[in-house]
Simulated scan of single mutants.
Amino acid sequence: MKQVSAKLHVSTQVTAADLAKAKAAGVTAIINNRPDGEEPGQPSAAENAAAAADLGLGYSHIPVAPGQYSLDEVRAFQAAMSAADGPVLAHCKTGTRSASLYAIGEALDGRMSRDDILSLGQSLGLDLAGAVRWLDANSNN
């Protein structure tokens, strides 16, 4: 898990064992940003939702294709984070989509600049240039 903010951590694909470790670390909710079937052997959203429920964790599935963010997905991500009673773990294949959804929302709401997004990506070891490109292409949002 990489800490993005006081409330958000991101990670690569999680397993049921990873969810148990996340709960032990204080995570209260999971956001899955991977479409089902993206990669062979990937746990399905239903499998991870069941594992999260068994642990008493909140769970949201907001599937996003790599680099193809929409305003609706950004706002759904923000809503899932707001609904969580505590720290959230968002995951995708590398953590980049999850961090990008967060950064786009923060920029749209005036809490983060484009430069802040790139700095955040560097600090996490993730390339968030796609989030900046999305903002540039959708500046009227």
Rank of each mutant, 00 (worst) to 15 (best):
106 E>I: 10
89 L>I: 02
99 A>G: 11
101 L>P: 02
80 A>R: 00
80 A>N: 03
82 S>A: 15
70 S>D: 01
78 Q>A: 14
113 S>A: 06
78 Q>P: 00
71 L>A: 13
106 E>R: 15
98 S>H: 09
97 R>L: 11
115 D>P: 05
85 D>V: 03
107 A>I: 09
71 L>P: 07
70 S>T: 15
76 A>R: 11
92 C>L: 01
124 L>R: 09
82 S>Q: 14
111 R>Q: 14
98 S>A: 15
107 A>W: 09
70 S>R: 00
123 S>M: 10
93 K>I: 06
71 L>I: 12
119 S>E: 14
87 P>D: 13
128 L>S: 09
93 K>H: 15
74 V>D: 00
80 A>Y: 02
95 G>L: 04
77 F>P: 00
87 P>R: 09
82 S>V: 05
85 D>S: 14
98 S>P: 04
121 G>I: 11
76 A>L: 06
69 Y>P: 01
120 L>K: 14
106 E>G: 08
101 L>G: 03
94 T>N: 04
109 D>V: 05
91 H>Y: 15
92 C>G: 04
107 A>Y: 06
84 A>D: 05
98 S>I: 02
79 A>Y: 04
108 L>P: 05
98 S>E: 10
89 L>W: 01
126 L>E: 11
89 L>D: 02
88 V>R: 01
95 G>C: 11
109 D>M: 07
104 I>F: 10
78 Q>G: 15
82 S>T: 12
90 A>C: 05
74 V>G: 00
90 A>I: 04
126 L>V: 13
97 R>I: 12
83 A>G: 15
111 R>V: 05
78 Q>F: 01
80 A>D: 00
128 L>A: 12
79 A>T: 14
120 L>Y: 11
123 S>F: 11
106 E>V: 08
92 C>T: 03
84 A>I: 02
95 G>T: 04
122 Q>C: 06
112 M>L: 13
83 A>K: 08
126 L>Q: 11
118 L>D: 13
88 V>G: 05
128 L>H: 12
83 A>V: 03
69 Y>A: 03
127 D>P: 10
101 L>Q: 00
91 H>Q: 12
103 A>N: 09
79 A>M: 02
79 A>P: 03
85 D>G: 14
77 F>S: 00
118 L>N: 09
119 S>R: 15
98 S>M: 05
96 T>H: 05
70 S>Q: 01
87 P>E: 14
91 H>G: 02
74 V>S: 04
89 L>A: 09
72 D>V: 05
80 A>H: 00
81 M>Y: 01
111 R>G: 14
81 M>A: 01
110 G>W: 10
123 S>I: 11
74 V>T: 05
96 T>K: 04
120 L>I: 08
75 R>Q: 10
89 L>Q: 05
68 Q>W: 00
125 G>E: 12
84 A>S: 12
108 L>R: 13
107 A>M: 07
95 G>V: 03
112 M>S: 05
104 I>D: 09
72 D>N: 00
97 R>C: 06
88 V>S: 04
99 A>N: 06
81 M>L: 10
115 D>F: 04
87 P>L: 02
80 A>M: 02
